[in-house]
Design a protein around this nucleic acid. Structure first.
Lengths: 248, 248
DNA sequence: CGATGATTTGAAGCTCTTCAATAAAGGTGG
DNA sequence: CCACCTTTATTGAAGAGCTTCAAATCATCG
């Protein structure tokens, strides 16, 4: 269930943490960090492992340190929709909530920086830097959710795929910048996870990826590595009006 | 553009406000309220009027006092998706953002309690009760957005309609409780607005409403008033596993 | 090398959309 | 108050896009 990688010991010290400046702790002063350090612990989940089921009691909230996790919702008959994709520095869990509302699953091997929920909630009330940062992150997520709603409600299968590739390219491209040509990304998601994200079947996902490949919009190296010769072409296929939502 | 109803003068005093205990000011102490009163002003918009266009400079954030407003996103070719439905006490606008990211439109005649943005942002940093409440509201909206994503991505047209009716019944039914039978609601939305909400065409909305009527799941009195003989039947049609998301 | 899981591809079917026409509801001015 | 016009809603028929079911291919791992 919980295997600590050998190098986690080093990370007791928040100042060495790779997500120190983007996570919920981003704005903390040294003394606030040390209060966080008191209630934190690391957990690692293998790809495919459940982190939390909807209905479970939530003992902790957490920051994703590395890896990718998914928030999903499942209907009685098995239809499934991803409703959150958690990348490093993203926050999981809702302060003030006892019972989880969504399933959380490790998509790739994932390490979480967990905070015991009750002490964290107390901390929210006493250290404004944490609650301010959490508000900011919640509003960012809300924006992302609204873009996602446009995708789910109005985009074609092809546009959905192009949008997802663009989103992943922007957040997780191998060389950070997504401006020029030759962006390369490692898809952290299986075809099935992509279909859960996009509200499609995995067959449709596969067909549309094949179509984009055939037309030269993307190139594949293996099933999971995607090369994007021209980001602008991909963005056009995504149907977004702006240059990638880079506006503030 | 902005006509003040005759009774707005009375509402200078926040303590008389109908949304006093649910809006962003819910947790404020009297002294905090008076700080809000200094930066607030009311504006009223007629049904159909734009409140803000995406790309506009945001001069204010606001609470919806009465009426219904919609957040929408539009693609170049005109495809449109609603991404937020703002009912009384809901908050509009994002502190920290200069430029609006979504269109905001009055669906019915709507009165807003506006706060000049810059002073409001300052207030957020200095009065924890406002920022705590705003965080709570943002997290609630995020939950709602995630339910909405399941609807958009995975539900059938029929389930979408039933879900929307159930959502409106829960939040705006004429007699507050949605337990027993004979819940009655006034649809604040046109068929077109419903289609924008649901990611459908307005024809499909109309057909599915007709179908639900024919099968006795709902009854219509005029086009806009809906009677729900048995809430449980409607919930079952909505495809939700729980009894209406009443869980915390 | 066989086995398991992931992915691709094919063919048929169904849901929802599109285009078109009709009907009902609201609003306005005579 | 009613004829007229505009907006909103309903209904029909044909077609497109995505899903479903099925089978084949590829990849990975013991």
């Amino acid at each position: 269930m919980t295997e600590l990688p050998p190098d986690l010991a080093r990370m007791k010290d928040c100042s060495q943490c790779p997500i120190r400046h983007r996570a919920v702790c981003a704005r903390c002063e040294p003394d606030e960090l040390s209060r966080l350090e008191e209630i934190k612990y690391y957990r690692t989940f293998e790809a495919g492992q459940p982190i939390l089921w909807a209905g479970d009691r939530m003992e902790f909230v957490a920051s994703v340190v590395s890896g990718v996790a998914a928030l999903t919702q499942t209907m009685e008959d098995g239809r499934r929709q991803m409703v959150g994709l958690l990348l490093p520095s993203d926050f999981a869990g809702r302060p003030g909530r006892e019972i989880a509302k969504f399933d959380v699953t490790a998509v790739t091997k994932t390490t979480l920086c967990c905070f015991r929920r009750k002490p964290f909630e107390h901390l929210l009330e006493t250290t404004p830097h944490v609650s301010q940062r959490l508000l900011e992150m919640a509003l960012d997520e809300l924006d992302a959710a609204r873009e996602w709603m446009l995708l789910l409600g109005r985009k074609t299968a092809r546009e959905k795929i192009a949008s997802l590739l663009a989103i992943i390219a922007r957040r997780a491209s191998i060389n950070g910048d997504t401006r020029g040509g030759n962006v390369e990304i490692d898809l952290p998601l299986t075809r099935e996870a992509m279909s859960d994200y996009l509200g499609l079947t995995l067959e449709t996902v596969s067909r549309q990826i094949s179509a984009l490949k055939k037309e030269g919009v993307i190139e594949l190296q293996g099933k999971r590595r995607v090369m994007i010769p021209d980001m602008r072409t991909l963005m056009a296929e995504a149907g977004d009006d702006e240059d990638g939502g880079a506006l503030l």
